[in-house]
Design a binder for these strands. Structure first.
Length: 423
DNA sequence: TCTGGGGTCCTAGGACCC
DNA sequence: TCTGGGGTCCTAGGACCC
């Protein structure tokens, strides 16, 4: 069966979310930073025009920020996740066959439409999302996911397309491929781009028409699939159900390096708490957990890293249980004289919350206990992250990552609701 | 000065088994 | 002279994604 894929991609998503709630940002250069306020990870068109790149270090951009009065935000994921849900709700009204690909992209299955209806339908989708959520989107339509991705990119770039481009059965496909740099293809990163260009393959049309066996030899089956998709042969289907998560991890760098054991233990407690919360959200309990500590491998200081595996006799997602074990493990891993940059946790074996195996000598989590944790989670969700927390979990450690320029949780926290005034 | 954090997929090679 | 070969599981590393 011949499929038709549409890729709907939110433009400058994080920045667009901020703009929905502050119209004074319109027309101004705006950037959003990574979780530790270190890198630029989203830019408004105005900021792009000023030369801000994805992944730029903020400290290197200070002059430019001052000079052009760039508005800078720490990332506010509570807001972005919520806006993401709203966009998807609108998209779901256009087709039930929808894949959530990333926080700002959805694939839609539009199979069954006539080629000449597609562009108009794409424009309806774009208009409806923008009207109901305030988030601007681009739409690319084609026979395969990779081509839909490419169409989307061109839709964003081209003035004429005005945000929607349909390449399904289009006579302009070759032209579109020729206009696409080979490095802009989905699945072709920096390494492959260099390799292809040094072999004279500069645009997507040349890549599509290169010998298949050569592409497979140089880029494994991944490359061969990209090529097949450019030839309108579907290799990737719509995945409506998210894959069950295998590993649940928490690994964050510290705002500043940690040298003392006490501080490292405090950080470990906070990360264990976070890990437990993640597990509760997906209704899993951890059976085996890897804990690791690591110095900053970008620095010139002496390097050290070590890991330990923790076994839980009865799988758990109770913060008290996780914190106790993780802190004890970190105490063993700690070596004096190093500057620690991060702690990582990774649940390598988990069990479903309602299928946890009992243990003869260790009590199972009671249903009252589970209910208590559920209520605490809900409370924290509404009032702010750490209203109720384990006593050992500090939220004011020097090592806590900086996020000093975060916008309010407009849509998820009562105290942050926007206020409307009539003037 | 500072350098994200979460992933996926594929391949090669080693250990082990019969 | 010649010293199996095929399968599975695991890990590490490289490439990519947002």
């Amino acid at each position: 069966m011949d499929h038709i894929f549409a890729l709907v991609d939110c433009n400058n998503f994080y920045v667009s979310c901020e703009k929905v709630f502050d119209f004074t940002l319109r027309g101004r250069p705006v950037v959003v930073l990574s979780p530790n306020d270190g890198l630029v990870i989203a830019r408004s068109n105005e900021a792009k025009a000023l030369g801000f790149k994805m992944g730029d270090a903020v400290f290197q951009m200070q002059d430019l920020i001052k000079e052009h009065a760039v508005v800078v935000f720490s990332s506010n994921y509570a807001l972005y996740f919520d806006m993401c849900d709203r966009v998807r709700e609108v998209l779901a009204q256009f087709t039930p066959r929808l894949e959530k690909y990333s926080i700002d992209e959805c694939f839609l299955d539009l199979s069954g439409f006539q080629p000449d209806e597609l562009e108009d339908y794409g424009r309806q989708i774009k208009a409806k999302v923008e009207q109901w959520t305030g988030i601007p989107v681009s739409v690319g339509i084609a026979e395969t996911k990779n081509l839909a991705k490419l169409a989307n990119k061109l839709a964003k770039k081209s003035e004429k397309a005005r945000g929607v481009l349909n390449l399904y059965k289009s006579p302009y496909l070759d032209k579109a491929l020729a206009a696409t740099d080979v490095g802009d293809l989905w699945g072709v990163g920096h390494q492959y781009e260099m390799m292809l260009k040094s072999n004279g393959i500069v645009n997507a049309l040349q890549f599509r028409d290169a010998p298949e066996h050569w592409v497979r030899k140089k880029m494994t089956v991944m490359g061969a699939r990209i090529q097949a998709e450019l030839r309108r042969t579907e290799c990737y289907s719509l995945e409506e159900l998210p894959k069950p998560q295998e590993m649940v991890g928490t690994a964050q760098g510290f705002g500043i390096p940690i040298e003392s054991l006490d501080e490292l233990k405090a950080a470990a407690a906070a990360y264990a708490d976070k890990e437990a919360k993640k597990l509760r959200r997906i209704k899993q309990c951890v059976k085996e957990l890897v804990v690791w500590v690591q110095t900053n491998h970008f620095g010139r200081d002496p390097q050290y890293g070590e890991k330990a595996i923790i076994y839980f006799p009865v799988a758990s997602n109770d913060p008290a249980v996780l914190i106790k074990k993780v802190v004890a493990a970190v105490e063993l891993l700690y070596k004096k004289g190093y500057k620690y940059k991060r702690i990582g946790l990774n649940a390598i074996k988990t069990e479903m919350e309602n299928e946890v195996q009992e243990h003869l000598f260790v009590g199972k989590q009671t249903s009252e206990r589970r209910e208590l944790l559920r209520v605490i989670d809900q409370l924290n969700e509404v009032t702010g992250a750490a209203t109720v927390r384990m006593a050992s979990v500090a939220i004011d450690g020097r090592w806590v990552q900086k996020a000093t320029r975060q916008s309010p949780h407009f849509t998820t926290r009562n105290s942050d609701l926007p206020i409307a005034r009539v003037v």
